[in-house]
Design a protein around this nucleic acid. Sequence first.
DNA 1: AGCCATTTAGTTGTGCACAATTGAGTTGTG
DNA 2: CACAACTCAATTGTGCACAACTAAATGGCT
Lengths: 180, 180
Amino acid sequence: MTPTPTPPPATPPAAPDTRAPAAPEPAAPGSGDDWLRLDRQICFSLNAASRAFNGVYRVILKDLGLTYPQYLVMLVLWEHGALPVKQLGAHLRLDSGTLSPLLKRLETAGLVRRERSARDERSVEVRPTEEGAALRERALEVPRRIVAATGFPLDEIHALRARLDRLTTALDAAAAAEGA
Amino acid sequence: MTPTPTPPPATPPAAPDTRAPAAPEPAAPGSGDDWLRLDRQICFSLNAASRAFNGVYRVILKDLGLTYPQYLVMLVLWEHGALPVKQLGAHLRLDSGTLSPLLKRLETAGLVRRERSARDERSVEVRPTEEGAALRERALEVPRRIVAATGFPLDEIHALRARLDRLTTALDAAAAAEGA
DNA sequence: AGCCATTTAGTTGTGCACAATTGAGTTGTG
DNA sequence: CACAACTCAATTGTGCACAACTAAATGGCT
């Protein structure tokens, strides 16, 4: 979706609009209805924020020729130098089903190199190439532009991050429990 | 072996002169290093939270035979009864490229019906079928289970939602500005 | 009326997320 | 040593997000 030049037309995300009478079921007050509406707002908010973030990164990273997940991978590689796919996935909470094709594209782009570990033929070491390492210089501009785009002061960003991490931990545990 | 990051880069061109980032990692203050690390933390946190949320919904919605985006669509339809694709997309910030195949799958599953509007042959009205409307009863359980999974009290959920909506608004505006 | 910009869904192509499976490689145990 | 259990990466298949494009319908305009 192109950055919508039109401001949120009919429905700003925070609009707890008055009940639409078009619904087939009239709501019993205090029933699950309220919960459904709340649920729509909550899960939608997180989803929308994630996609909005993605959109900003998409625009900013276009110059570097990276997608947002590719940028995340490069950030980890810049920080750690070289890692087996497994370790990379642990850092990013991604599995080989996502990483294998992504890394193949990064290799085609000449940014990383993949080679079987000599010590353990099962594992594949991923390391940035010269070009991949050089790209880091150009990436230094990115974070400040992102932070500026949020319009949030740094301490609030940190607070939000802490909340989200707490949320993630709780949700992961809950998903595991539900799955069992 | 040496997890040592690549040697310290050149100093960033323009120091934003804001207060020093109180990042948990002690690194050369003001260097781009801090920012890259911070960026990794921030964007990763939101991304991870979104995917964790998705994971919990996936588990809970499996009984209903819905995916998370399909559930979002049904929530809107349960609330509004019937909508053209365009309106649906406005509510969810999704375009036809995403909605068309998704709605086709919902139609195949017998949950919605699509028909060209008589008044405007361009638009397609989407409305829940009997079966789709009936599914709502079984969905009433979902939100409570989600909220329970977060472990967050309701007021904190609302506060988080407000922050995320503010973030989304700012990011959308910034993406539009960058794109221009 | 005829023309034309706009609106609306749909289609195509690329890339990501994730479950399930495969197959090569490694390790523990008898 | 033999062999079962495990680990790791890759592959397959489904579904979503989004950009770019197509095609049809609409409405404004002269």
